[in-house]
Design a protein around this nucleic acid. Structure first.
Lengths: 354, 354
DNA sequence: GTGAAAGCGCTAACAG
DNA sequence: CTGTTAGCGCTTTCAC
């Protein structure tokens, strides 16, 4: 079926502050005062008249004009590798909310994890005059030149190392991983593999170092290392290689929940059981991890707090005060995949009646 | 550690078109012409001078000013219930890309699925002067009044019924569900349950009707109906109720992949096997479905195409031509959960060498 | 408590 | 081919 659309283009021309002023019998300045609650006071009765005119006319302030005048778009930009990745989706959502709470909208952009795209997206955001940018790069050394000579404040979100001149917020990647390995050791494992996502860059991911340290502290040799993409497919492939390994490890630490989910599938297909034949511990603490089978033990990142801190850092950025690297502690969430919880967790225990 | 930030606020004041004009020794108009490639032609040598001045100064056009002048922000808005839901994440990502390809940025907003929030977000987007909005509501009757009397073109995305005055794009909810049930019947099932998400509204979801029809066509009675939230937790709870049912069904059709993932966990916990003890067919075709255990048979929505069509409809909207409801066909993706594929799918079969 | 007016940076007539 | 200029709608200083 086909219908005639609402509100044809031929409708009323845009209503401006001026129309409101005329209808309310005041000046445009007064309209501004009541809309913005300042900077001058307005007598209650005039204010009421203005408000009435506003709703009678269905007036909406024009954000572009406001942005032009104020030199601020009241928008923040965020570039992430992939909003489809649950971890980044959750992070972006948290940032969006924290930003909204302060009156800022969030312009989200996917980089697909390539430096070139990152640069392009940053440039695009810059030209849209966002008031600041969150950069969640997957690269060790994101290309910051674009950010450096735009006047735009930026914070590196999900970045756990120091970058001179930039605020950043991250988590204890190394310590979290170390503790996860330590935990697996506590379950009696002595051959613990690592499934590690690949970053474009040649530094060692701190998660890898954490795994090494955990092993070293326990006096254990390093198990096999499997490198793969940071996604389900990558984890799946790594899992296939892992179960086929000659001296099959009895446990594995995986660098992200997403990869662990893929790995779990490969393990199931091979007819092995988790955690009996292979214990699994992953990283992130996303919702995926809670509903996989078995549920994944994982190192949980405090996404909410990180988002909050990032927004705080970005909005409060004066361009002068010293730059900081906020590192958040992580939590071990123990579920069945490492051998801890054989049964459903309390949170989920009781089915709703009926 | 703490470092002194880059680009202190005391840096150069914003560079405008005027600075460029001065440096290039031309008028501001000429700068505009070369930046926008029109509307007038500029001699190659002047153009070169201008471009040089632009990069020498690091000039960036001010989008706010442009938006004000043009009456277009070159931004589109999208409100979805939850970007954290993989289906909407994927949809939003596809829309973002389709929009970007046409020079539009996407302002994303979460409504949490409540009508009040939807309205608030639409209003917010409207005040930011987006050139159009995609509304992906989970409600049967989204509150469109806000859209109706803003002048903003809108398309209802993920909406499969006709709404006078609005363009909309959706999928064959009913037909897809019917075929899923038909498929389960083909596997020999005679007691097929329904796990159905709850919408705020009192119309029947077309998926429910499709399930009914599938059953009716096979001359089968309706199995139990379990209603729950549209998330993993909801599916989990429904699954718990389902496995505890007196006359336990041998198959179930689930209204979304996310719910099915939750259900799968409940089934596993109960010690039942899928598909032997309970066959499962779900709806959406998201990535989650491919990596659950067992992999889910699901009714796949053509997300890419839908996004493309939605952007097309929104940008090409002239406010006059008649409004359309574009309904896309769906595909049955057959995997292990319904009893079809006992082994890994070809797509995933070969592990990368090594 | 209210109003007039000067721009914010850009585009696109219109005039040369 | 190039330049001048009038606004787009809003905020805010300064005068009343």
């Amino acid at each position: 079926m086909v219908t005639v659309p609402h509100s044809p283009a031929s409708a009323r021309p845009t209503i401006t502050r001026k129309d409101v002023a005329r209808l309310a019998g005041v000046s445009t300045a007064v309209v501004s005062y009541v809309v913005n609650g300042g900077p001058k006071r307005v007598s209650p009765v005039t204010a009421a008249k203005v408000r009435e005119a506003i709703s009678a006319l269905g007036y909406r302030p024009n954000a572009a004009a406001r942005a032009l005048k104020l030199g601020s778009s009241e928008m923040l930009g965020m570039v992430v590798p992939d909003t489809t990745n649950p971890f980044f989706a959750t992070l972006a959502r948290a940032v969006e909310e924290a930003a909204a709470a302060r009156g800022y909208a969030l312009l989200l952009a996917n980089s697909g994890g390539s430096a070139a795209n990152e640069r392009r997206q940053v440039r695009n955001l810059a030209s849209r005059r966002v008031d600041g940018v969150f950069l969640s790069s997957v690269l060790f050394e994101p290309d910051l030149t674009e950010l450096e000579h735009s006047e735009i404040p930026a914070v590196l979100l999900n970045h756990s190392t120091e970058v001179p001149g930039f605020n950043s917020v991250g988590v204890e990647l190394l310590e979290g991983s170390r503790r996860a390995v330590e935990h697996l050791v506590g379950h009696g494992h002595r051959n613990i593999a690592l499934v590690m996502g690949m970053n474009a860059g040649n530094d060692l991911d701190a998660r890898e170092v954490g795994w090494q340290q955990g092993l070293a502290e326990a006096g254990l040799p390093e198990g096999p290392i499997l490198r793969c993409d940071f996604d389900r497919q990558g984890g799946y492939r790594a899992g296939q290689r892992l179960v086929a390994a000659a001296d099959r490890p009895t446990a594995v630490f995986v660098s992200s929940d997403l990869q662990a989910v893929g790995l779990l599938r490969a393990v199931s297909e091979a007819g092995l059981r988790v955690p009996e034949d292979l214990a699994v511990f992953s990283f992130d603490g996303s919702a995926e991890a809670e509903f996989s089978w078995p549920p994944l033990s994982t190192v949980a990142q405090p996404v909410q707090a990180m988002a909050e801190a990032a927004v705080e850092a970005l909005i409060g950025f004066d361009g002068l005060s010293p730059t900081r690297n906020r590192i958040f502690p992580v939590d071990l969430v123990l579920r069945a995949s490492c051998g801890c919880a054989p049964v459903p967790l309390p949170v989920l225990a009781a089915p709703a009646g009926q």
